[in-house]
Simulated assay, not measured.
Amino acid sequence: MAANETPQDEPARPPESGRPGREFRMAELAAEAGVTVRTLRFYRERKLIPPPRREGRIAWYNDHHLARLRTIGALLERGHTLGGIGELLAAFDAGRDVGELLGLQTPLLPPWSEETPVRLTPEQLADHFSQDVTAENLTASLDLGYLAVDGDEFVHISRRLLDASTELVHRGIPLAAVLEAGRTVRAHADALADVFTTLIRTHLLADILERPGTADLPGPQEVDHIARTIEKLRPLSKGVVEAELSMAMDRRVRTELETWLREQGDRDCPGERDRRADEEGPADAP
């Protein structure tokens, strides 16, 4: 037992004012998480769990520590090493720090996208991507904004993107390659969004948005007009992008197929000509 912890156990106690969740002594936390006190100390020494709150000589742990221990156990069951788990948890905590720093902002206009966020525990994320859940991929996902950290969970910004990424990984494409492709798609999508916003700003809202000076800021009616204009153009822009992408995929697939067939023909034609020559026999002399 650590020298700075009292030997007697005390029951978990309800939170004090301003301190959310239950609090546990070390032995009780270990029992709740299904690990030994020795294992708990080892995790703490490896910095896999954050330090407890000190109250004199007593160390108090909370629900966050319990969730972290359960995450470690779940990842170990899925084949992750303690070293890899440590890197994942460091990236997780870094993502949470950034999220808390940035905070949430109330948008002026309703969101353009219609995506449904998905809440995931770290072990659920591992179920989606198995051994591809690494510190590098987690950091890339946080950097791209696909994932955010909320408490002891992740929030993925889009059910559709999560499902697509999961399917691609299950089909054999490494998650790192999927994320790199996502970064490229994001850049092109931003460029497309710039095209449409420039059209709207230049031709539909110039009289409001490009007034000189800041004294005549848009009033409530003008803000409502901006919102309604953008909302009406939402399906048009999405339809244009979907149609152009569909036609571009058709062109690209057709080009790739024609190139492959031509290359196959270049390899096969000499043999095919020889086979036909043998079947036809020597040409008659004149």
Rank of each mutant, 00 (worst) to 15 (best):
T255Q: 12
R70W: 10
V98G: 03
T229N: 05
A31V: 07
A12V: 04
M247F: 11
A74D: 15
P212H: 10
R262D: 13
P122Y: 09
E180L: 09
E45V: 09
I72R: 02
R211D: 13
R96T: 05
M1Q: 04
E5H: 11
V253L: 03
A27F: 02
R186S: 13
L209N: 06
I226F: 04
R254W: 02
Y61G: 04
G21Y: 15
L108P: 04
E77K: 10
L109E: 00
R186V: 06
L162Q: 02
H225L: 13
V169H: 06
A148C: 06
A277H: 00
L245Q: 09
D266Y: 12
P51S: 12
I200V: 12
A187I: 00
K47W: 01
W112L: 04
G34A: 03
R171P: 01
H188L: 15
A27N: 10
V155I: 14
P111F: 07
H225A: 12
E256D: 05
N137R: 10
R70D: 15
L109V: 01
Y146W: 13
I208V: 05
E55F: 09
I200M: 09
F154H: 13
R38Y: 11
A283S: 14
T39S: 08
A243Y: 00
S237R: 07
R273L: 12
R251F: 11
T121K: 02
H170I: 00
R201P: 02
A177W: 07
W60N: 08
R276F: 11
R119I: 09
A181E: 10
A59M: 09
A283N: 03
D194K: 08
L161C: 02
A277F: 05
A126I: 11
E77A: 14
A285C: 07
A126W: 06
W260N: 10
H80K: 01
R275A: 15
E279C: 02
D278R: 13
A283F: 09
H225Y: 10
P282C: 01
T134M: 01
T81F: 05
L162Y: 00
G73Q: 12
R68Q: 11
G73S: 13
E87A: 15
I58C: 12
L40M: 09
E136I: 08
D207A: 08
H225C: 07
E222Q: 13
V223R: 03
A206P: 00
I72G: 00
P20N: 13
A67V: 05
F154N: 07
D9A: 08
R183S: 11
V149W: 09
Y43H: 05
T197V: 12
I49S: 07
I72H: 01
L75T: 14
P220I: 08
F129E: 02
E153G: 10
R68K: 01
P110V: 07
E28Q: 10
H156F: 08
T121V: 05
L144W: 11
G73M: 02
I208M: 02
G213K: 11
S17H: 12
A248K: 14
L233P: 00
C269K: 03
A31K: 06
